[in-house]
Design a protein around this nucleic acid. Structure first.
Length: 589
RNA sequence: CGGGAUGUGGCGCAGCUUGGCUAGCGCGCUUGCCUUGGGCGCAAGAGGCCGGGGGUUCAAAUCCCUCCAUCCCGACCA
């Protein structure tokens, strides 16, 4: 009896949650995309009625948008729990004191939303939760017996982006899953890291995404090893390189990718350092054309402003400097190109004529490749003049030599030496080995078997949930709209009565709809008094994986047309088999 | 934060250069008729502080100043 009641209750609950007719859904589709939407995922999510903008980088999730988010969250939860992680929820509002303690209050900069309560106490809206969780752990974990520990939450995050853009891809408020691992030592961290790495693979696979993990830079969060999970897409903000040799497997964010230097092969006799007039020739292109030399013969000199003073950085003329590498090499937090006025004061010449020879009062850092150059051209630190036959070591000596240049397609792979290829990616997840940065700063220690107090070894692991939804659209769409993978589709199937005035069609449609609901399929019935064309257009736009069409044919023959959004094909399924067909379809994908 | 652009019914736009009728068009919305397998047709409607404030002028969507918002490019970031 009890079981019977419980079953009934469950059925009712399920039905209540699932049952929905399009006429009652808040599903405002648009024929035209709002002008502000630039990229396809933003346009389609707006047009299909999944999201609406509230402010720059801040969005409301409408019913269907929320359904997708919940699907993604459910997959994330399953895979986190499978690895033994425990879910918690931490506050969005965080006291500034903790951030002072970790040292990030001043480091994080204007990106941190800061606010004050009525008593003048200062808080921030959490962009990430290392401080809060480390504070929790230092209070609650004392013994090695309590480790390892994996804790996560799915929570709103806040970052006051300089430039929110691309809709959900770069918002100021977004949903993120963040997990933190706590281990006794690096060996334990390695295990946790691998667990998460594998879980992330499964999550993005289950979300139907084409992605790649790549080596990455650790940025402001700090730490050593880190990988980013990149959904490959033309509109991705990140530039990646990967090895063209399939079995090599090297892949990295260009911010991180190391660039091995090809040693100089042909030795050149050093010529005489000489100043030549280059009136008005400021850019690499102008100078090379004027002097009739190749760009790789030029030494490009860029002046940067850092919190530790001004720096001159040198790279070859045909190279791009990688600011992340530069920042790391210099060990500074801030690193911006100096403005024209500063350049003039420091180099004694207008912008475009700075060079390493005779540059004073500046820290000089050269790219590895620059040191291999011979008889190069550089600015003379004098208006309208360049030096020729500049030779590193003879004419100037940098204070530091480091890998500064940004890797490009065609460069050799640092592992196997094959050519590197470029691609763009949307970062949907990142795994970090934090090490002891936060546990030491905040004093999160445990006692080992011998009673020694040892800092906890930490890792942190993020997934941008809202971003994952957008990335999926970016990857799964056609001219007509979104093509959701079944695993994260807002509904699995749409039932469309073609002519709602034909009672028989409508009754059959309702019957099919009920059959699906009873079988646990997430279905929706388009009961609107609209022409078939309108319903089809909306259905394509919204991206339901399956569309069951109930028209004349269905009524007469009890055969139902099933349109598959993914491949655009329609097949006919007898009414008796329709439920099992839909269930099988949803399972197999 | 620097550079550029744009703000006119829910969405997409015109009008602004050269100030002047009642501010237009397409889509959407409401009502009626009609139609019903890919955004159907006809008719009648509703809906605007022309981003805000200030100025110039007899008169401002239109010219000037200022603020705000939004988008793009750059610099930064998960």
């Amino acid at each position: 009896m009890l079981r019977f009641l419980r079953n009934r209750l469950n059925n009712n609950l399920d039905r209540g949650d699932l049952k929905m007719k399009v006429s009652q859904l808040l599903l405002p589709t648009l024929r035209e995309a709002p002008a502000e939407a630039e990229i396809i995922s933003h346009q389609l999510l707006l047009r299909a009625g999944f999201i609406r903008k509230s402010a720059a980088g801040v969005y409301t999730l409408l019913p269907l948008g929320l359904k997708v988010i919940k699907k993604i969250e459910a997959i994330v939860r399953e895979e986190m729990n499978r690895e033994g992680a425990q879910e918690i929820i931490m506050p969005i509002i965080q006291p500034s004191e903790l951030w002072q303690e970790s040292g990030r209050w001043n480091v994080y900069g204007p990106e941190l939303f800061r606010l004050e309560d009525r008593h003048g106490r200062v808080f921030c809206l959490g962009p990430t939760h290392e401080e809060i969780i480390t504070d929790l752990i230092r209070n609650e974990v004392q013994s090695y017996r309590q480790l390892p520990l994996l804790l996560y939450q799915i929570q709103n995050k806040y970052r006051d982006e300089r430039r929110p853009r691309f809709g959900l891809i770069r918002g100021r408020e977004f949903i993120m899953k963040d997990l933190y691992s706590f281990d006794r030592d690096e060996a334990g961290l390695e295990v946790s890291y691998q667990k998460m790495f594998n879980a992330y693979r499964r999550i993005f696979e289950r979300c139907g995404l084409y992605f790649r993990p790549v080596e990455a830079d650790s940025g402001a969060i700090g730490g050593s090893d880190t990988h980013e999970f990149m959904v490959l897409a033309e509109t991705g903000e990140a530039l990646l390189v990967f090895c063209s040799q399939n079995d090599c497997g090297y892949a990295a964010n260009v911010e991180r990718a190391a660039s091995p230097v090809k040693k100089r092969v042909d030795f050149e006799e050093p010529g005489l350092l000489e100043e030549v007039a280059t009136p008005g020739k400021r850019t690499v292109e102008e100078v090379t054309l004027f002097l009739n030399v190749e760009p790789q013969k030029l030494i490009k000199t860029l002046l940067y402003e850092t919190e530790a003073g001004y720096v001159a950085a040198l790279v070859r003329g045909d190279r791009i400097i990688n600011q992340v590498k530069l920042q790391k090499a210099l060990g500074v937090l801030r690193c911006d190109l100096a403005d024209a006025e500063v350049v003039e004061r420091l180099s004694g010449a207008r912008v475009g004529f700075a060079g390493p020879v005779g540059l004073k009062d500046l820290r000089l850092v050269a790219d590895l490749e620059v040191m291999e150059m011979a008889n190069a051209v550089s600015g003379a630190n004098k208006d309208d003049a360049h030096f020729i036959n500049v030779n590193p070591g003879r004419d100037f000596n940098p204070d530091q030599v480091a890998d500064l240049r940004q890797v490009q397609a065609g460069d050799p792979c640092p592992i196997c030496g094959s050519d590197l290829e470029e691609a763009r990616g949307i970062e949907v997840g990142q795994v970090f080995k934090l090490g002891y940065k936060y546990s030491k700063a905040l004093g999160a220690n445990y006692l080992d078997e011998k009673g020694a107090s040892i800092p906890i070894c930490m890792g942190s692991y993020g997934i941008g949930v809202t971003r994952t939804m957008a990335a999926s659209v970016e990857q799964n769409h056609d001219q007509n709209g979104i093509i959701w993978p079944v695993s994260i589709a807002p509904y699995q199937a749409l039932v469309v009565p073609i002519n709602t005035r034909e009672d028989e069609q409508f009754i059959l449609a309702e019957k099919v709809y009920e059959l699906l609901l009873n079988a646990g399929v997430e279905a929706v019935l388009d009961d609107r008094q609209e022409r078939a064309g309108v319903k089809f257009k909306d259905a394509d736009l919204i991206g339901y994986p399956l569309r069951l069409i109930i028209g004349k044919q269905a009524v007469e023959s009890s055969n139902i047309e099933v349109f598959q959004r993914k491949n655009g094909q329609t097949i006919t399924v007898p009414l008796e088999q329709i439920v099992s067909f839909v269930k099988d379809y949803c399972r197999q994908i």
